[in-house]
């Protein structure tokens, strides 16, 4: 490995890492609430809401992310209505915004799937107990359903976070220079394909390891809480 190339490449890749991080942050920060909302819609009693949410998930999970990003960035700009609306144009007119929107919508569908199974796996008895205590649906959601579903969903969601980081690389196809975009540019500039690949993989692996470790810590935190409450509730003499 040639260290001059490493020293040359790292500043560029660091600026790319900022963009990747930005897209991923939005993907996690807004994609998680979106996914939970859609999951709730999919488990709701209202047929129309349920069908619409199902369709959204099916479309975004059934088509490649590349197609979605192209439809959003190149396709929607063709519609005059969207072009004249300043809010929508702000969202899709800029490469970075379009990439964030695409990642957000994509991860929303996958997250919804994860949380839907988590909501479905909740024991009925708990919810019935909450209802019989006279809790309102909102309180049941906030105090019973959501904490339990989060614990169920967290292991799968952590792999979804790794996927978000990887999917953000597709932003480079619409000329947003994030890590992969810079890597491609550096590859064609220096011809040190393998060196650049190794450095870039180190960047991605670091991002993933940091993200996964954070989620694992959160997971442990949640399980710890559960263990405490269980020993308090069930065993008369703590061991």
């Amino acid at each position: 490995m040639d260290f001059t190339i490493v020293a040359y490449a790292i500043p560029f890749l660091l600026t790319g890492a900022k963009t990747t991080l930005l897209i991923s942050m939005f993907g996690v920060g807004l994609g998680l609430p979106l996914g939970i909302l859609v999951a709730l819609a999919r488990t709701s009693r209202n047929r129309l809401v349920c069908k619409a949410a199902d369709a959204y998930c099916a479309v975004f999970r059934g088509t490649p992310m590349l197609v979605q990003i192209f439809v959003i960035y190149y396709g929607l700009g063709q519609v005059g209505l969207f072009r004249s609306n300043p809010v929508i144009w702000w969202l899709i007119g800029d490469g970075l915004h379009a990439a964030i929107l695409a990642v957000l919508l994509n991860t929303g569908a996958y997250t919804a799937e994860i949380f839907r199974t988590a909501f479905l796996s909740l024991p009925r008895g708990l919810i019935e107990a909450a209802q019989s205590c006279g809790m309102s649906p909102w309180i049941i959601l906030r105090r019973i359903k959501f904490p339990l579903a989060l614990r169920q969903a967290l292991p799968s969601y952590s792999s979804e976070v790794a996927i978000i980081v990887k999917e953000s690389s597709l932003a480079s196809t619409i000329a947003v220079l994030e890590i992969t975009g810079w890597a491609k540019r550096l590859m064609s500039e220096t011809f040190a394909i393998m060196d650049i690949f190794i450095i870039t993989s180190v960047f991605y692996l670091t991002l993933n390891v940091v993200g996964l470790t954070a989620l694992k810590l959160l997971e442990r935190q949640l399980w710890f809480e559960r263990r405490l409450t269980r020993t308090k509730a069930t065993s008369p003499c703590p061991s």
């Binding site: 790794a162 990887k166 690389s169 992969t180 064609s188 393998m194 690949f197 993989s201 993933n208």
Partner: peptide
């Protein structure tokens, strides 16, 4: 397996094509 699953598919494709 860790490297290929950890980096975007696009990067693997660039490596194989340009490399």
């Amino acid at each position: 397996s860790i490297v290929v699953r950890g980096v975007p598919g696009l990067l693997v494709i660039y490596l194989l094509f340009f490399g």
